[in-house]
């Protein structure tokens, strides 16, 4: 039976308390949110933190709100909560698309948005989705908070800019105008498995159908900061046609760095990146047009 090694446990009552505990217990302490990555890693003894600081009792981090032209998602919002949020899906269908294919209902009921980003798994879907959305991470320290673009949040696999005595408290996404739409596409070997590859697309189109801004997020294929700036650069100023989306997929495929594993060899992952980027763009464009026509797709 898998059992973790000895660990101390502290329950944080507030963000300030959590920061105080993090300071007191130092870099060998780990924040426990949903625990769906941390606890299995502890049971396998791949992670052996000295102290767990449980933040699940902190109130105020579990809200999804709109304020100052931003969608704000608390770090303790559960996947299931984001999946069910009409506000989030109304503004950014990419989030609902992604949540629908993250893990399984049991994980989604308890796993958190903040935990997913901080775990910084290279296959994490929300990193790609928020990357495509150009979201902002709000990170709280004892001396105040700072705002870090999600595109600068990850330092590498399982590594983020959040310092040992800091806490990610919120994700903020600037709300775009009517000409925008988004979508997420993922293929995995089986439901609940990590992506073989996944692509999120966020499109802003002018009234004549030209791409004025694009966000392309990629998971599991070694894209720097989970985005394809090359594909985004290619798309800006192009007409939003299937042919262009196909080419954008090719650009995304060429510029990612997938690693082979049992989910697939490099050539397939590259192919899939292109295919899914193209599909996400098409769906995002359909949503832009539907929105202009007053529909939801």
């Amino acid at each position: 039976m898998q059992v973790p090694s000895h660990v101390e446990y502290e329950k944080a009552k507030s963000v300030e308390h959590a920061l105080e505990l993090l300071t007191r217990f130092g870099p060998e302490a780990r924040v426990l949110a949903g625990g769906h990555s941390l606890i299995p890693m502890m049971k396998l003894r791949l992670a052996q933190p000295e102290t767990l600081i449980d933040i699940n009792g902190i109130s105020g981090l579990s809200r999804i709100t709109v304020a100052d032209g931003e969608l704000r998602i608390g770090a303790l919002v559960r996947h299931g909560q984001l999946l069910a949020s009409a506000v989030a899906a109304g503004h950014f269908p990419v989030l609902r698309d992604a949540e629908q294919v993250i893990a399984d209902p049991i994980v989604r009921n308890w796993g958190t948005i903040g935990g997913s980003l901080c775990q910084a798994d290279p296959s994490e879907d929300l990193s790609a989705a928020f990357g495509a959305l150009r979201a902002i991470a709000v990170i709280q320290g004892r001396d105040g908070s700072r705002r870090v673009p999600v595109r600068e949040f990850h330092l590498g696999p399982y590594e983020t800019v959040v310092a040992p005595a800091e806490l990610l408290t919120e994700l903020r996404v600037p709300i775009a105008g009517d000409g925008s739409g988004s979508a997420y596409e993922k293929v995995s070997r089986r439901v609940g498995d990590w992506s073989i590859a996944a692509a999120g697309a966020v499109l802003t189109l002018s009234s004549d159908g030209t791409v004025t801004e694009a966000g392309i997020g990629l998971a599991a294929v070694g894209a720097g900061h989970f985005v394809s700036t090359a594909a985004e650069d290619f798309l800006r100023g192009q007409p939003a046609t299937d042919a262009v989306f196909g080419q954008a997929g090719q650009v995304a495929a060429e510029h990612c760095q997938p690693a082979a594993d049992q989910r697939g060899p490099v050539d397939y992952k590259r192919h899939l990146t292109g295919e899914l980027t193209t599909r996400a763009l098409r769906r995002a464009a359909i949503r832009v047009r539907a929105r202009a026509g007053g529909q939801t797709v």
């Binding site: 293929v187 070997r189 073989i196 082979a260 594993d261 049992q262 989910r263 697939g264 060899p265 050539d267 397939y268 992952k269 192919h271 899939l272």
Partner: peptide, 20 residues
């Protein structure tokens, strides 16, 4: 798997018992 099916369509199916 999706990878194996795609590789089959490319005429290059995988040895599935080895590391990819």
């Amino acid at each position: 798997t999706p990878a194996q099916v795609w590789r089959a369509t490319q005429g290059r199916p995988l040895r599935t018992d080895l590391a990819q």
